[in-house]
Design a protein around this nucleic acid. Structure first.
Lengths: 330, 330
DNA sequence: AACGTTTGTGCAATCGTTTGTTGTGGATAA
DNA sequence: TTATCCACAACAAACGATTGCACAAACGTT
């Protein structure tokens, strides 16, 4: 029942374990004949390297940690696909942790990463994390860290994200350019930096068009209690021209209300920031700023692999965003 | 820059490494005084156990492999949340693999699991996998395997899923009970066992109600080419009363067509098999058979932990499904 | 006072793999 | 012939943590 080890093969072939190891790893010191003997023996006895032993000896782990605040339907699956795509031809495996948006848990997870000697960390911060101090042990251990999407900029850690305020500005400007003025902005939790930045872009775009911004023109999801009801009340009481929706999740939440009131597309335009899936599942398709989890995941993993090779300096990279217009030209 | 090891602590406190190890692990042989000395030293020097070394020595890994055919928006995120929920108070970590629906890749992944000495495997099969022979090495190595959702029943491996044909039958019967007769069934890839079983349930329900089943009353997604157009043509040419949709993905794909033709809810009823998210984001909500990724993930992980403890016999467990009625009573 | 028991710690081996160094026989060059 | 070099393989140590066993000191028992 015991699995065959290098030692077993060595005994079998009357060779030294070191020779087996080198033969299997294609070391040039080994003669072609021996290498073949070893390879066939390994194959017939179904030898499998013990990665625990190997990585232990080599002081690494072949693991990349992916730390996420939560699972959701849109961004995260795309992100994971992207990471998977970038890593599938490497010899790295992904060990996944979900912080459940709990900074304490996030800190614990960092500890696990250290104990596991992960070779790199991709992390999207939990909503209420407002400092990067808990990541310092990783830096001290020389483990590359790349913050993805939900980030805090700091001189200590590299980040990859989109320009959130720019994305929002672009989206809202598309509405104001069409002469729409009564615009309701729908946003997520206010403690999220991403929310504040997108709100900045929103306000900025309104300001550019000399549209006065009042607190009444936004709806935030701070209290989970009754978003749908709130939205319905708001839409019933105010004749909005258009909706700016900050994320796919919020668009998803808004959908039944919009359908119920039958506002879209006739009397209510919509733009959102999205990975593009949901907008195309609405008829007619919804104009959106493309924010692809796949792209961030793939680019992020590739960047991380780079960081794992050389000594990279800290960077803050913004993936460029683009407006995906889905309406016929006016 | 070298991290502190048990040996370092031993030197520091003039103790033997074994004593440090025992103190840290709460072994009763160690005096309270020594234990405290060791603990404070470990804390001040930020000692972190080297899991590679520990697991290597203990011949295990603390890892549970989660093998998925693909990432999607509905089932998989829920599944992962469930797994995470069940595992968060254990000391196991999740190492994730995506087979991209490629049986060859699936086989490779099994090899990785063996090399990693994972302690258990949760696997949802790739669509075109039609045998379990590639899992045998796991069984031979004594590694518990639990097939989730996309399964093949066999005496060799345990499974956890729902009764697919039953779920479909339940859903469709709900339609026929209301006197609806012209029912279009929308299905996924035909080579999936799950599809065939749900189709069986579909046909069965029609047969029970003496509704003749013809090939024209189903639409399958075998060719990715133009599902939406096909669906639109079908709905335009035939006055269907109702739609049975096999999965959330398919409902999502069908959505723009249904909206475009403005059939729902007035002239077209819908039932589907779903995790419940999407049906509640449609107005009015869609009646569905609840098929929760979260439940399967959580139950699956709990079952796997059990299997990892004792010697469990092979089982085929079906999570019970229930009809979630979303319409007002007639 | 001699012995047994308990309590707390040290010793040493072990897990499987890798790698720097050393050794050996044969071929080549001087 | 003898010195030199090369190709190949063996030797041995190392990674960090765990654990069966040995052992010493302190105590209680007759």
């Amino acid at each position: 029942m015991k699995r065959t080890s290098i030692l077993d093969l060595a005994r079998l072939l009357s060779l030294n374990p070191s020779t087996i190891s080198r033969a299997l790893n294609g070391h040039p010191d080994i003669s072609d004949e021996t290498r073949e003997r070893v390879r066939t023996a390994a194959a017939t006895f179904q030898y499998r390297p013990n990665l625990q032993a190997r990585y232990f000896r080599n002081k690494n782990s072949g693991l990349i940690a992916l730390i996420l605040p939560e699972m959701n339907m849109f961004f995260v699956p795309g992100l994971m696909n992207g990471v998977n795509e970038a890593l599938k031809n490497s010899d790295k495996s992904v060990i996944i942790f979900i912080s459940d948006n709990d900074p304490e848990r996030e800190k614990e997870i960092i500890g696990h990463c250290l104990s596991w000697m992960v070779e790199g960390v991709l992390i999207s911060l939990s909503d209420s994390t407002n400092t990067l101090s808990h990541l310092m042990p990783l830096k001290e251990a020389g483990i590359p860290v790349l913050l993805l999407d939900k980030i805090i900029e700091s001189p200590d850690f590299s980040t990859l994200s989109i320009d959130d305020s720019d994305a929002a500005r672009l989206a809202v400007t598309h509405l104001t350019n069409k002469g729409l003025k009564a615009i309701l902005g729908i946003f997520g939790h206010e403690n999220l930096i991403m929310t504040r930045q997108r709100m900045d872009g929103f306000k900025d775009a309104l300001h550019q068009s000399n549209i006065s911004f009042s607190g009444y023109d936004t709806l935030t999801l701070n209290t989970q209690d009754n978003f749908e009801q709130n939205l319905e009340n708001r839409l019933r009481s105010t004749p909005y021209d258009a909706l700016f929706v900050m994320s796919d999740e919020l668009l998803m939440l808004s959908l039944p209300v919009i359908q119920k009131l039958q506002l879209y597309p006739a009397s209510l335009k919509i733009v959102c920031i999205s990975d593009g899936t949901l907008p195309h599942r609405i008829y007619p398709p919804v104009t959106h700023i493309l924010h692809s989890g796949f792209d961030i995941g793939k680019s992020g993993a590739i960047l991380l692999l780079e960081m794992m090779k050389g000594q990279t300096i800290t960077f803050h990279k913004k993936l460029s965003v683009s407006l995906q217009i889905a309406e016929p030209n006016p």
